[in-house]
Deep mutational scan, measured.
Amino acid sequence: HRQALGERLYPRVQAMQPAFASKITGMLLELSPAQLLLLLASEDSLRARVDEAMELII
């Protein structure tokens, strides 16, 4: 289940942060499945989480 969510998330994360897409997707997969579904449904929520992840990385 998580694998399938990751496969759906990755291209969207890659479009926002290509250099760190794998790392960010891995970080996002730590969230609950319900939270992941919310990110897939909301571009704004996904962008906010990706921005948060980038702050942790750099």
Results as ranks from 00 to 15, higher is better:
L56M: 10
A4D: 14
Q14C: 10
L28T: 00
S32Y: 06
L46C: 02
A19H: 11
A19L: 12
G6H: 14
M16F: 07
E30S: 14
E55T: 14
L9Y: 01
L46T: 01
D44F: 05
F20K: 03
E30A: 12
Y10V: 03
A34P: 09
S45V: 12
L29W: 02
L29G: 02
Q3I: 07
S22K: 13
L36T: 03
A15D: 09
D44I: 12
E52T: 06
L38N: 07
S22M: 15
I57M: 07
E30L: 11
K23S: 07
Q14V: 11
T25E: 01
Q14A: 14
I24C: 01
S32C: 06
V50M: 03
A53Q: 05
V13M: 02
G6M: 15
V13S: 01
P33D: 13
P18T: 04
M27I: 08
P11Q: 15
R47P: 00
L56A: 09
Q35V: 14
L46E: 00
E30N: 10
L40K: 00
R47G: 04
A21L: 02
L37I: 09
A48Q: 11
Q17I: 12
A41L: 12
R8W: 14
L56Y: 15
M27A: 04
L28D: 00
L31E: 05
I58A: 12
L31M: 08
E52K: 08
L9M: 04
S45D: 12
P18K: 05
A21K: 00
M27C: 04
L40V: 04
E55G: 12
L36M: 05
R12H: 08
Y10D: 01
P11F: 15
G6V: 15
A19N: 11
L5D: 03
R12S: 06
H1L: 11
Q35D: 05
Q35K: 07
K23H: 07
K23Q: 12
L38A: 10
A15F: 08
F20Q: 05
V50I: 09
D51T: 10
L46M: 04
A48H: 07
G6K: 14
F20Y: 13
M27Q: 04
I24H: 00
S45Q: 14
E30Q: 12
A19W: 09
T25Y: 11
Q35C: 07
A41G: 07
E30C: 10
Q35Y: 13
R47L: 05
A21T: 03
A48V: 10
M27H: 03
A21W: 03
I24Y: 00
P11W: 15
E55D: 09
L5P: 03
G6C: 10
R12A: 09
R47H: 05
S45T: 10
G6N: 08
L9H: 02
A48F: 11
V50Y: 01
D44A: 14
V50R: 00
E55L: 15
R2Q: 12
L9V: 06
L37K: 06
L37M: 13
L9G: 01
P33V: 13
A34E: 13
P11D: 15
R12F: 14
L36V: 11
